[in-house]
Amino acid sequence: MLLCFVVCKCAVSPTGDKLYNINRYQHKLLTLARDGTVLATYRDLLHFPSANIHVTPAGQLLVGDGSCIIQLHSEGNMKLATLVTGKEMYIMRGSVSVCYNSTTSSILVAGQSNSILVFKVQ
């Protein structure tokens, strides 16, 4: 199987010591060391196969899967919060891209509906 069919999205930690990979077929997030060693696996996500991932400057992970956006610990092994769900995500219609803007303390979500949602973080 080609790698592009297994790894859907990936991101790198701010320090460059971890690589986060979303496996779309096994519906999980893998945290890898630089040498490829699996450090952690998080399985309770990815209802939608085109999930997206973003690493904040503090190293926390934001994962958007079309039905919600969750925040994970920087180790990639523990959910910290569900940030966005419900009707806000419904209008995005499918896969989303998620990003954290540290200047404005906002989470930006873009989807297939050609709209962008902005959520202020406390």
Rank of each mutant, 00 (worst) to 15 (best):
C68P: 06
L80D: 02
I116Y: 06
Y20N: 03
Y25D: 08
N101K: 14
M1V: 10
L30M: 03
V109F: 06
C4F: 12
F5N: 14
R34G: 14
Q60C: 05
V63C: 01
L72Y: 05
I116P: 05
T41L: 07
R43M: 04
S67N: 08
S50G: 12
E75T: 07
L80Q: 08
S67R: 06
G16V: 13
V7A: 11
L83S: 09
K9D: 12
K28M: 07
H54R: 03
L80N: 06
N52P: 03
R24F: 00
V118I: 15
G16K: 11
Y25K: 14
A81W: 02
N21M: 14
P49W: 09
T104Q: 13
T37G: 01
N52C: 14
A110T: 07
S67K: 09
S113Y: 05
D17G: 10
N52M: 12
L62N: 04
I70T: 10
M92D: 01
A11C: 10
V118T: 15
Y100V: 00
E75V: 00
L83D: 05
C99Q: 13
T85W: 10
F48R: 13
K9M: 07
T31M: 05
S50H: 15
K120F: 11
R43I: 02
G36F: 02
G64A: 15
I107T: 08
Y42S: 05
R34L: 15
K120Y: 12
T82Y: 03
V121I: 15
Y20I: 10
L30F: 06
G76F: 01
C4V: 12
T37Y: 04
I70G: 01
S115M: 09
H54F: 15
A51S: 08
L46H: 05
A40I: 01
M78C: 13
I116W: 04
F5R: 12
G16D: 06
Q112G: 10
C8W: 06
C68G: 06
M78N: 05
S95Y: 07
K87N: 13
V109K: 00
E75H: 11
K18F: 07
D17F: 00
V6H: 00
P49G: 05
I107K: 07
S106E: 15
V7S: 14
N52Y: 11
R24P: 06
C68Y: 06
V7T: 02
C10K: 04
L39S: 04
M89R: 07
L61D: 03
I91M: 09
S13W: 07
Q71D: 11
